[in-house]
Design a protein around this nucleic acid. Structure first.
Lengths: 340, 340
DNA sequence: CTGAAAGCGCTTACAG
DNA sequence: CTGAAAGCGCTTACAG
């Protein structure tokens, strides 16, 4: 294990000053081309790497983005939602392609996560990802804003604050998929998923859902909306409550795929045939959705695009450029869980 | 957006020296308790955070771990393997609980990934995760070793090099699940997955598989082994080759769940009944495995445990403690894809 | 228990 | 195009 070499070692070997080494290594046009390649060759030979801590300290930027992934604290020990995992993957890729490092961190919704990363100069900006109770967490966003922290969040647009978000057009998605089943001839629609401002994305999907029903002269029956959060188990239980309620229904719109998957399990345990008796649809298009029985019709949120947009938007903010909230178009993915 | 405050600002307000602030903030017992809490209160009020770049530079450690996730370059644009995504999640959690930050980075197998992170002082150590061609990548491991880099890899044990790994006991897993189907009365076993030292984990599973067959006086028919890598499509194609080969078979052991899922698709398209005509089993127990039709019997690799072990082992290495290669016990998960 | 001082390894005005 | 020098914001011997 050899000693780590510094820019002074390179300078010594190259017979130039340390400043010149620093310039050459960052491809400064100020350095003579021959000198530069000589220095770079020596650096390579010595396996020299610029010390990130030193260069970041000096230049006051880190070329690093922090991803704060927060989840409902009640959901603590279970697996991470596959949709977010998939976002994580695409954000990692997007950062890599921009030459940024990605610092990933789990946060409990309850913690003091605001501020930490950018203030300690670990990252130039933050990406916020996760559900959690939106009402609780809004005040932390305000604090981030006050501090002038650069950040972008994934989620529903925040209308009353100058916060930049990237999110899916949940309203349109909810509307489209509901219309799809309406056209298939279904009449009584249950909605499984929380419909309140505590979970704005589910709420938007629900609003789109209701809008579609109204547009087709179908009644919105509040007794057919059951709260559920983003887990399979939660979907299972909501579906059981629906079944036990005695209300009749021939279609279930779930606020996310995991809820839909749980609902299908409940339905099948109770002897319902999908899609013959009940159509089921989800939202997200997680990998599992392709493999359920029957395969789940759903609304795809393009996580690859989302990751790229989040990263690009944040970089614009960091570089002081204009950036704005973007909505990703939802995409209907038809499989076999609806009557055809 | 206020100016960022430094330890000198705190010192000024507290009427002490900057050294004392630095000590107080790190809970040094050298500081008078009253002074310490006064300083900490001021720091909190000013929203002060220690500058990580400065403290890392000075102390020459980063309290950061880098996760290098590398995938087969041919697999470039597709989704990340769900098994690795799940490992990513559990490693993130394990790091958080140890107070370490996690730097995540994608690597092409072809790139010059060795060295970069620890040499530039961005991380104190590396976790290496991913399949990819093991033969190609071994020489890079040797280079890491030469440099004295702290690293742990996920995967099969490397017998001839002093490399610390954490991996599943693939041999035993392959053996157990094969024995499980043997007891169910199956006679002709196909194995779908590459069986060579280029993919050591698959190879180990295959060896366990063969061992189980031999132990039960069943013949190992090399014509029933078909190469496949860790994608659904690859499993689909291997199963098609098996079906078209004209060989008879009543059980398929897939080297991983994604291969199994692809194989089930091929079988069902060709009119085979699972599990009546053919038993299918996988390996990994990814989330999808619970939701396929029929649900997939498989071998679970405990990713939560794996993540914790990887992190703990790496931290031991970083702290100069003894560490050794660990094998995680595989766990049979019985579902419905085998005849009962 | 506290302070003055050195120094981690760079980048970047400044001067030539 | 190049070099000498300052300084980013800390931590940590050293001295008291």
């Amino acid at each position: 294990m050899k000693e780590k070499s510094t820019s002074f070692d390179i300078a010594y070997r190259a017979g130039v000053s340390q400043s010149t080494v620093s310039r050459a290594l960052r491809n400064s046009p100020l350095v003579n081309a021959a000198t530069r390649s000589k220095i770079q060759a020596i650096a390579k030979e010595l396996n020299y790497k610029v010390d990130k801590n030193a260069s970041n300290l000096r230049s006051q930027q880190s070329d690093t983005i922090a991803l704060l992934l927060f989840e409902d604290p009640t959901n603590d020990d279970s697996a991470i939602n596959p949709f977010f995992l998939s976002m994580l993957g695409s954000i990692t890729r997007a950062c890599a392609s921009k030459g940024y490092d990605l610092l990933v961190s789990f946060q409990q919704a309850s913690e003091d996560w605001h501020a930490d990363f950018e203030d300690s100069n670990k990252a130039d900006g933050l990406i916020l990802l996760g559900y959690g109770d939106y009402v609780d967490y809004e005040e932390k966003l305000v604090k981030l804003l006050d501090q002038g922290t650069h950040f972008v969040r994934w989620g529903a647009e925040v209308k009353h604050l100058p916060i930049i978000s990237v999110g899916c057009d949940n309203f349109t998605g909810g509307k489209q998929i509901t219309e799809h089943i309406i056209k298939l001839g279904r009449k009584s629609f249950a909605f499984l998923g929380s419909a309140s401002s505590h979970a704005p994305e589910f709420f938007e999907r629900y609003k789109g859902h209701c809008q579609a029903l109204k547009a087709h002269q179908l009644t919105v029956n509040p007794a057919l909306q059951f709260n559920a959060m983003y887990t399979e188990e939660s979907g299972y239980q909501a579906a059981c409550r629906l079944i036990n309620s005695g209300e009749s229904f021939d279609a279930i719109c779930a606020a996310c795929d995991l809820i839909a998957v749980g609902a299908m399990r409940a339905l099948q345990e109770h002897g319902f045939k999908i899609p013959e008796q009940v159509s089921v649809v989800g939202f997200d298009d997680i990998a599992i959705a392709s493999f359920t029985f029957p395969p789940l019709t759903t609304v795809k949120q393009d996580t690859k695009l989302a990751g790229e947009l989040l990263v690009n938007t944040l970089l614009s903010l960091i570089h002081g450029e204009k950036a704005s909230t973007t909505l990703i178009p939802p995409e209907l993915v038809m499989r076999k869980s609806c009557a055809s």
